[in-house]
Design a protein around this nucleic acid. Structure first.
Lengths: 230, 230, 230, 230
DNA sequence: CATTAAGCGAGACGGTACGTCCCGTCTTGTC
DNA sequence: GACAAGACGGGACGTACCGTCTCGCTTAATG
């Protein structure tokens, strides 16, 4: 039995935040006084790990609820009790795993352009990692299924967008470049678009030239927008 | 039974070129001495129309070979005789339909920036059309299935990339901006990336600001690269 | 919520005798030092009533432990604590309900033939009643499951057989017809066989002709056997 | 893999008569001009044999569609294409197997009583045979499920009743005993009732005494009815 | 009279079988 | 030989209950 490639699952999340997707916040009111057994955390982890192990090993098409159940040593019904579909499971793993990898942590001494380049490099690399595969699969499935698209946009993508906007703003502020919200929106699209485009359409590893150029062009545009403001 | 939204399918392609994907060139030698009826063109059209009608009406998940066969009034085996899978059928419809819509035809009197903007506007609109839905579905499926990715990249995406490179070069030439091949590659990514990013990740209609900015930034970068050459 | 058709459940039995099947005598030794609450009689009744209400309303196939638990407002585990299976529950209801209905109480002034006819008439009618449905279901299930067959034969059927033998002997004695035990066995089969045959195989209401003929033939045979003895 | 205990399945029925239950006569009009594959007879036999082998080996409760499919080497869907349920399959095996065993073939030189006794002896023995187990299971299930009851009564039981009435009439005619139809109905109940009663309720092998007495009493009653007519 | 073990409602869990959908292959008969 | 029709072996689906197992509360005899 292969050790899961993920090590950090059990670290850094409580049951509540981590199960956001399967136990929406609004439902919490219902859970006033509960007697009887509680949801097993070990089951939850086994399922999440089984799911993205299988995704990485065999691909999305070969990912089945029955396969996940078997690999996790769990009954099918237990999966259906907490998740609506295999996509719902993957959305859960995403919350745990992808968030860290796509975080902005610009190095202290870097210039704005260096910081941007470094971040974009990390985004590029992300697509090669297991968590990146999960995001890729979900983005793919979102093209095929409107519900998936909705969930993904309302959850992960919205949050990530906020992080990216904030991160970019902060980096620009280092060089006193300030851009309003609509400008930042534009900049984020200009900055991330080319990377996702290459990754999703051509699947090729993203070359350093594209990353650096993107960073440089984004910064140039930001300066232009900043100047126009004053 | 709804009239298919496609009208131009039967025009402008012969059976041979259009079925490139399902009948590879090497197989043509086999068709030397043939008895019995030939492939029915009406069957081919019925299948292609049924497939993308169903895709648009019910979505990719509900698209099944049996459903297509029924809708087309065709036996399942007939489909399997000519196509390997439902994805193969969609690849076929794409060849027929998407090519036109993503063609470059810059207006005579336009400036480079106007021409770029106009083309990008058309790309943006394309995602709303039926043919755009087909491409979206195939791009989605390509994230989930390596074979689909290969076929799509080796066929449609490669051709389209060539068209885009050539189109961009031609438009830039209008203002004596000349960029080498690797530069054009970069420019195409910068130009189309943001549009695909918004369309695939957020599904929102692409606003004019993004299109115009992308055109302007691309042109600026092109000039820079051109200057660096001389 | 429908009022149960049974009214007499709570009358005339103690918890001990009634739960014979689920608490065998040998187990009583275990109950040496007991603290905590005792078995709730209201739970027991709720389960028994729920079970045969559901049996009559929806049939045996739709009778599930979970359904009974829900209808009775009882936890599943509580049922499993006291009964082994839904069949075990039905066996319990049978003990309460069927015994009365199949009792012999020959009217004082009746001739043997009148008494026999009257009793057989009551047997016929029994199959239309709720308690008769329970017996029918158990007899049916006994054909499918050897354990059920064993329990039913060792319990209800054995007791009932004894009642029928005694009842018949007593009625015959009124006219000084005396038959030995093996003869009585034969007579009981001849007397009840046709009724059960019609009820179980054809499900049709049993007509008076059959009942009277059966009574008459049984009596004739009894006289013959009695004569042969002396 | 055990050789099925049935040897006569493939003998003595055509596809049409044998599939009465799954292809009702009224449907034949639909089968006007049929192209495409036909129902596989070998599949049909494999399923019927698997079903009653399993019934005899493991009992009705352990008889599952999946088990039958596996044992027969057949896909589950293939079973559902032709039969509605496991009960429907058993009804089909009954048509093939039980009919012969319950046929009347009175020996030429026998007296009426000898002929009756001989026939009833064969009925008694039938319950021990595999085909008897099938009938027992179906009779059992008919007590639990109204649909089963209907099918069984409308098919097998109705036919068998007709055979029994005719057989009895013929045997009585040997000694110039003639009884009208309603009388015969009564006689059949009197004759078979005790046997089924013992077999179904007590499951014990039926002793010779009961068989002979039943035959004798039936004949006596028949003579009485015959006399009353003239 | 507090202790403490059982009864109990609730329901999570590992399972099995259900009946359905669709896959891709194969067979039959028609044109 | 292409084609319509559709039977077939197969795999996964999502559902219904099974019987076992905690969990946290309530209750009643015993120490």
């Amino acid at each position: 039995m292969p050790e899961s490639h993920r090590r950090t699952r059990s670290k850094g999340y409580g049951a509540i935040s981590a199960t956001r997707e399967s136990r929406p916040a609004g439902e919490r009111t219902k859970v006033v006084s509960r007697t009887g057994p509680h949801r097993s955390e070990s089951v939850r982890l086994a399922v999440l790990n089984a799911a993205d192990d299988l995704l990485v090993e065999r691909g999305f098409a070969a990912l089945t609820i029955e396969g996940i159940a078997q690999r996790a040593g769990v009954a099918k019904q237990t999966i259906y009790r907490w998740w609506k579909s295999k996509v719902d499971i993957l959305l859960d793993t995403l919350t745990d795993d992808a968030r860290d990898a796509l975080q902005w942590h610009p190095a202290e001494g870097d210039s704005a352009e260096e910081a941007l380049s470094a971040h974009l490099r990390r985004v590029s690399d992300f697509f090669e990692e297991p968590a990146g595969r999960v995001l890729q699969a979900l983005l793919g499935h979102a093209q095929l299924d409107e519900d998936t698209a909705k969930s993904l946009r309302a959850g992960f993508l919205k949050d990530q967008r906020a992080l990216d906007t904030a991160g970019l703003r902060e980096v620009l502020a280092r060089e006193d470049v300030t851009v309003d919200d609509s400008g930042l929106d534009l900049l984020v699209d200009m900055m991330l678009g080319p990377l996702y485009y290459r990754a999703l359409l051509f699947g090729s590893p993203i070359d350093k030239g594209l990353v650096d150029t993107t960073a440089r062009v984004t910064l140039a545009l930001a300066r232009e927008l900043s100047a126009a403001r004053s």
